[in-house]
Amino acid sequence: MDQYEVLWAGFGGQGVMVAGQLLAYTGIKEGKNVVWLPSYGPEMRGGTAYCTVVISEQRIGSPIISNPRAAVVFNRPSFDKFSPRIKAGGLLLVNSSLIDVTTDRDDVTEILVPANRMALDAGSPKATNIAMLSAFVGATEVVKYENLLATLEEKLGKKKELLEINRAVMLAGYELGQKAMKGAGKKVKA
């Protein structure tokens, strides 16, 4: 792996920033270089939030990524804004619980993740971001699953109840991502 860039986008409160940070923490655990860059600007509550994470074996140049290799979108405005920006041959993960459209692009792999549904089924809507994050890791293997799990336990392990829910969602998301990539190149519906 030379360098992987992934953009995380959604409403404020969906855990988009945290998902990106968990990935970045896990990258450090694996001895890689990482940059986490948030969008910051004047925003209202419930407004859009996004961040980019770059993971690389080499020294990282630009923290600004115009065309990432992957985008993980949590809501419709993010889908509209960022799905056209993904590099050709890249990956798009869509929160299909809230986004009822799919991309017209035939040069990216699209994975539909019913993230809100998965989180609710496991017991808490708070785990939505973990569903998206683990599906991304399942699809890309940018970091190892067990390292991601260790990060989750370190950073979000205080509330035992919620940790159990997150663990369950993480496994389900990871498996969804893995399975989806077996049909890579095609539209993948989960």
């Binding site: 940070q21 450090i28 940059v35 986490w36 860059l37 948030p38 923290p63 600004i64």
Partner: peptide, 10 residues
């Protein structure tokens, strides 16, 4: 610049 303040790195 603002990026030095806002971004996270190891």
């Amino acid at each position: 610049d603002g990026m030095i303040g806002q971004m996270m790195e190891p």
